[in-house]
Computed example of a mutant assay.
Amino acid sequence: MTYSAKVIKGGKIVIPAELRRELGFADGDRLVLEREGEALVVKSYRQVVREVQEVFRPYQPQDGRSMVDDLIAERRREAQQEDDEAAASVPRDRR
C-alpha cells in the first residue's frame, strides 16, 4: 500500500495513523532514519536493535557460556596481575 505524508514547519513529518498502527509505532517511540540513495527508510529503534543482534549472533558462543562473564573474569585476572606486579616493584621496606 502507498501512503502520503507532508513535511510541515520544523521538518516534522506526520506518519499516517494506519501506517503507524501497522508498524507498531507509538507516541514517543524513537525512530531511525536511513538514506538509501534517493529514498528515506524509517525503522523503529527496536527493529535496528534486532538487526544488529542478528549480525552478531554468529559470534555468540554456542556452548551457553556468557561472553560478559568471560570478559569480567578476564578483566579481573588482568587487574590482579597488575596489582601483583605493582606490589613486586615496591621495595620491601616500604610495604
Rank of each mutant, 00 (worst) to 15 (best):
M1D: 05
M1P: 04
T2M: 10
S4G: 00
A5N: 00
K6Y: 00
V7F: 03
I8N: 08
K9G: 13
G10F: 11
G11S: 06
G11N: 07
G11D: 05
G11R: 06
K12H: 08
K12F: 08
K12Q: 08
I13E: 08
V14P: 09
A17D: 10
E18N: 11
L19T: 00
R20L: 02
A26L: 05
A26K: 06
D29F: 00
D29K: 03
V32G: 03
L33G: 08
E34K: 10
E34Y: 03
R35F: 06
E36W: 05
G37Q: 04
E38F: 00
A39Q: 03
V42M: 03
K43M: 07
Y45L: 02
Y45Q: 00
Y45W: 02
R46Q: 11
R46L: 05
Q47V: 01
V49Q: 02
E51N: 08
V52W: 00
E54I: 11
V55S: 14
V55Y: 13
F56S: 14
R57H: 10
P61G: 08
Q62T: 15
Q62C: 13
D63C: 14
G64Y: 10
G64V: 14
S66D: 12
S66H: 14
M67S: 15
V68D: 13
I72A: 11
I72H: 10
A73P: 07
A73S: 05
A73F: 06
A73W: 01
E74I: 00
R75D: 00
R75E: 03
E78F: 05
E78L: 01
A79R: 02
D83P: 06
E85Y: 11
E85L: 11
E85D: 15
E85F: 11
E85P: 11
S89W: 12
V90C: 03
R92L: 08
D93Y: 12
R94E: 11
